[in-house]
Structures are given as structure tokens and as C-alpha cells.
Design a protein around this nucleic acid. Sequence first.
RNA 1: GGAGGGGUAGCGAAGUGGCUAAACGCGGCAGACUGUAAAUCUGCUCCCUGUGGGUUCGGCGGUUCGAAACCGUCCCCCUCCA
Length: 380
Amino acid sequence: MSAIKYELLHVCKQSGARLGRLHTPHGVIETPIFMPVGTQATVKTLSPEELKMMNAQIILSNTYHLWLQPGDDIIKEAGGLHEFMQWDRPILTDSGGFQVFSLSNLRKITEEGVYFRHHKSGEQLFLSPEKAIQIQNNLGSDIMMSFDECVELPAEYNYVKQSVERTTRWAERGLKAHKNEKSQALFGIVQGGDFPDLRKMSATELVKLDFPGYSIGGLSVGESKETMYRTIEFTIPYLPTDKPRYLMGVGSSDALIEGSIRGIDMFDCVLPTRIARHGTAMTSHGRIVIKNKQYERDFTPLDHECECYTCKNYTRAYLRHLIKAEETFGQRLISYHNVFFLIRLMENVRQAIKENRLLDYRDEFFAKYGFSDPTNSRQF
RNA sequence: GGAGGGGUAGCGAAGUGGCUAAACGCGGCAGACUGUAAAUCUGCUCCCUGUGGGUUCGGCGGUUCGAAACCGUCCCCCUCCA
């Protein structure tokens, strides 16, 4: 009895993309979907009300960060993460596996788990597959991730092979440690770098363990878009069609569309909120760096075709001013717009799947975006 | 009127004979950002431009092989005493 249930509603006749519904303890989400990231129990600068206004259906949070601060025991005592942060819709938590990658110079991997050195205090920390599950059980997320190693690309075949085997063993250990199977679903994470046989091995071994959903990890970590798409293509066939597939850490608009076409159901990414804070907006006509001088006297909206709160009320000149003056309101307005933009994009993708025209939609979107070279991610 | 301190690139501020077109900070202009060590990081910022050239350190005139730095003089600013 799994805590979640995936319902495949329709397959796009033109592209093969999947339209679905994922039933979770905190509600139903429509897939393919983009999940905004709220690492420290908040999507940076945005309130739960604002996320609801833009129709965010599920958000992501992080085991590693909440374990260190404020501590998962405190969140459990608060009544769980939903209650603690006042978000009553579904939450997915990452396991800390990405921190094995992003904090690579501060950690040491062993079979038992990973030793981290706290980046500020220098304190010695240890995270294991069991510990990651226990923390997520305390957080009470709807969907939890197995503790994995996210390997940087390019990588040595032999290293990736032993890493994948270890990640699979860790997944099995996590499954055994999981206490709340009825209220929380645990996903397995497929690794294997850009090697077809290792991805196959990873996927088939995890599928044997019968997880309620599968993530594809280890992508968007330095490889080309071409490699990423190819890797998705040769991984997906080994995943069951009656379970959700989650492509971890991917959130540029082109990759959301291309991923959906290849059968991905869920995406998450810090990109929209991070670049917003740094003064860049995603628009239907391409990325614009709002802090650039050319917008100094531009009294038009960020995106003429956008209906978000920011675009309905404020000008580029004002947003540029706020960002340059380091006013947090500017970061909020652009974060709001960027997340809205990706959520709306996925609504359009779902509609296109329903109408069996996702490939046409992709071409229209790319043409308008000013996208000419599909291997050049910089335009997104 | 007397005593002292100071004038360096858009601003602040190092530098007191060659390694200085001149540290550093700010500002400015660009770029990056993909399961968030990220309101962060990187580059450029006298002029023309090729890893080449041309003009600079208040003005003018000297000393020296060589000066932003030493000397003379003029201009301007600040502090204290009258």
C-alpha cells in the first residue's frame, strides 16, 4: 500500500509525452509538473499564499539543510513540515544526495554513508541512507528520496559503476529503514552518469525493489543538453509506465519541454528563483537580464504576454531599479514571475499533450523564445 | 595675519626615485547561475586599440639616465591659533 498513486491519463500521439495525475496524502498534482524549490522550508522570497496564487501544486525541500537547521526533531515537534511552514499541499524532500555532489570538497564517502564537514563550524557530520530516511520521516514529506551519490560529469566508468552499485545498496537500506510507508512515498534514484549500460543496470535493479516512483539523478551536472537528453532516452525504457518519473534538478524551459517529450513527469529546479535574485527573468521571448542598462527607461512589463502579478503591475525600469538598489522587493517580484512562468509553461505542455501536439508546441515556443541552437543551454 | 595638513583615475584611498597605467574598496558595464554553502561568483572599467601604441597622478618650471614620488613657484582645499 503506497502513499501515492500515479494515474496515466493520456499519451501524446505526436510526442509520446505523458499526461497524468499523482495522488498524494496532501492532494492531487497534475503531471508533467514543475516543482519550485524551497530548500530551507521556504521557496526563497515567496510566501505559501503567493505560491498558491501562481498555482504551484507541490514544492521541494531538503533533508540536509533542515537536519542541520532547525533540526528535524523540532519540525516533528511542530507537527511536521507542512504545519511548520504553513504549506498544506504536497511536499517532496530531497535526501541530501545532491549535497554529496555540491559539497564535494567537504565530504568523504564510505559504504556506510557520507561524512560532511560543516562549511561554517567545521563540525563533523555523518549522513547515511537510514539517517536520511529517518529525517524525512520526521519531516513528514509526501514524497521522499533515497540517499544517493550524485556523480559529477564527466566521470570515469569504473568509478560510476561502483558508485551506482553503492547507491542501489543504499536505496535498499533506505527502503528497510522507512517507517511511514502509508503516509510517505519513497523514490529510488537512477544514477549511472552518461553510460547506457550503467543507467540500465541502475534502473533495473531499483525497479526490482519496487519503489512507488523513480527519479533520474546525476543530470544537469556539467554535461551538454544533448548528453542529458540522450541519457533520459536510454533510461526511460527501463522504468515502469505505471509509476511517476522525476528528473531531478532540471528547470530551464527548453529542458522541461524536451524532458516531457521523453516521458518525464516531474521536474524541480532552483534556477527560476536563483537567477531572479540575480536580476534575470525568463520570458516568452527569451531570458532578459533586467539589470542591464538597456532597460533603464523601459516602462513596459517584463513579459507582454504574461498575466502574473509582477507583469500586470510593474515595469522593467522599476524592476531594474529595485535590483540595482538591492531591494528585496525586486527579488520577490522577479522570483514570482519566473516561477509563475515555468508553472504556466507546464500547464501549456499538459494542454498540448491532451491535444496531441506537444512537438508543435515545442517548435512554437522555441521560435518565439529566439532559440536556434538546441545544444546551447545559455539561451535559456 | 600665525602654525600645520593636504591636492592620485567617476568617488574614496594606497603609493614618497626605476618592478606604476598606478594596489584596494565603492560605483559603473557585462557574463554566469539547473535535486540552493548562492541577495553569490567571474571579467572589464584613462584613451585608441592586437599580448601594440598614446597621454596621466592640481598648474608651470627645474634636478635626474629615469619623477606621481626630489627642488622652486603659482593655484586650490582643510584644521587649529589670532
